[in-house]
Amino acid sequence: MAQVAPEVKVAEEPLLKVRGLDKHFGPVQALSKVDLDLPAGQVTGLCGDNGAGKSVLTKCIAGIHQPDAGQIFWEGRPVEIRSARDASRLGIETVYQDLALADNLDIVQNMFLGRERVRRGFLDEDEMERAAAATLASLRVTTVRSIRQPVATLSGGQRQSVAVAKAVMWNSKLVILDEPTAALGVMQTQMVLDLVKRLRDHGVAVMVISHNLNDVFEVADRIAVLYLGRMVAQDKASAFDRQSVVEYMTTGTVGRAPVET
């Protein structure tokens, strides 16, 4: 990284840049002056204790919450993400911690929710079913009996797989995964982590939120730590070790200070 040519520098402008983001709910200051960079082709692990503001930050980027102050830059341009539709138009897809699947709809219907394919005014069910089946197969989600079963009949891990598949189906440029492995068994966790790596290899920017530091260290190229709504550390993963991440998460600072933010 020592001798970077100027044109490479341009390319290194992160895909998504967050500057000075504030968000409060009544008296609760969920985010204060948060800066975050999400470069293309890299996995950023976002860590933080319960209530640190990880999900709120995610939702601000995904257009679910409107920040009170601060600016978001997409490919270098300032953008306002007012709705989920704005976000997906830019190429941002999110898997929420609380999944956000409609239990009464089946797998195909959930995967295409908000983006149904239509032919002559009517839903093109055959086409959607084919595309959904292809995506699930490419992710090796093979344990569901039928992609026409209601999501209510799926296990926690299967629901998680559907939520992930839903997000990666759209050739997105940025995929955000909020606790994608929390409900999963060993096998399925590995499957999701492999999927994350595959996305990165395709040049997609990925942000993974996880409490499991094993997972974070396995996939993350960069690590960012939130503490009580403030971004207290952000650097490439090799600059951290498990110990320092835990210290940042629990105290907001680190005694030995291996990293400067």
Binding site: I64, N104, N110, L113, R115
Partner: peptide, 9 residues
């Protein structure tokens, strides 16, 4: 799930 629908745009 109204929230899911909202998030789906």
């Amino acid at each position: 799930n109204a929230e899911a629908a909202r998030r789906a745009g």
